[in-house]
Design a protein around this nucleic acid. Sequence first.
DNA 1: GTTGCCATGTAAGGTGTTACATGATTTA
DNA 2: TAAATCATGTAACACCTTACATGGCAAC
Lengths: 178, 178
Amino acid sequence: MTIQYAILGFLSREPLTGYDLKKLFSESVTLYWSGNNNQIYRALVDLHQASLVTRVTEHQESGPSRKVYTITTNGLAALRDWALTPPELPQLRNPFHVQLAWTAQLDDAELDAQLAAYEEEVRVKYLMVREQESRNTATPQRTARETLIWRNIAANWIAFYENELQWVRALRADLAAL
Amino acid sequence: MTIQYAILGFLSREPLTGYDLKKLFSESVTLYWSGNNNQIYRALVDLHQASLVTRVTEHQESGPSRKVYTITTNGLAALRDWALTPPELPQLRNPFHVQLAWTAQLDDAELDAQLAAYEEEVRVKYLMVREQESRNTATPQRTARETLIWRNIAANWIAFYENELQWVRALRADLAAL
DNA sequence: GTTGCCATGTAAGGTGTTACATGATTTA
DNA sequence: TAAATCATGTAACACCTTACATGGCAAC
């Protein structure tokens, strides 16, 4: 359900094609959709049927024709209504916790190897998020308020991975001390 | 796929029924399954077919008959193999970020009301997690190492919500200062 | 007497991912 | 000549949630 509003959000800045949206989603770390076609193209059909967007097909000489979607006033109203909807809690799922919880059969070295692998994964992701934020891709910059919000969303992700790194390092140290 | 291993993990401590597992999942904050019947009972059928668990039906005088599942040596081996599997990154999805990102149409008061509502939701959840951890439910306590791990998993969740609280409070202050 | 607990399961539907399918143009 | 990019879409499947269905017993 939410991906439709994420799409409406992007369209509230400028008209885009499905392909554009696909790239925006797959490049973004903060938006959690993988940018797969199935969801995006279906969502666009739904949004169009609900009159929240209009569609114009542009035939190009070189390359395939593109369908450009533009948000309608209905769409803007829907986006505003949704923005006033009660906030949901973040959903965190950490399969590694489940894995960790049941490592009774592993010896100390095997356990630490798993923790080291996790630490490395988190470190790489952390650097990726930081790097992407420093390049500052796709930030709206419409108002100072919006810029502040977008910077803080990115900061939230950075803090999350920092927290995760600290945690796994502390756990490894505690286990070594045991 | 992972819920099967989470079930195997619980069964590695003691034999349990589907109903027991359902309660364990729905009471646990760190395991992210809602504890719905559909997944659990289907997973148990699958595990049984794969010979990772055995099933014994106990007919009770008072109340319905219960099917008690016990892990097999195959099951223990499967759990061990899985514990050595490469760790996955945590998946965090925060619908509120998406909502926040597109609040350009809201005025300052409306925006802060949303942030306040989010802060309150996080605060309540945070207190719940802390409270549950202090009651220390369902901790295995088989070895010092396992106890340390379980305490740290809980600590990770507490830190996560603490981080989220700090973040939203800082953001509200920043926006107020703007 | 209605709610809650014990205990099993099924149905339906929403959400999300990977892979498949097509085909032209540009870049290495 | 192989690959990446532009641009659309479909198929299959995994995952997860809510609600439905049944029925006895205990507690308030």
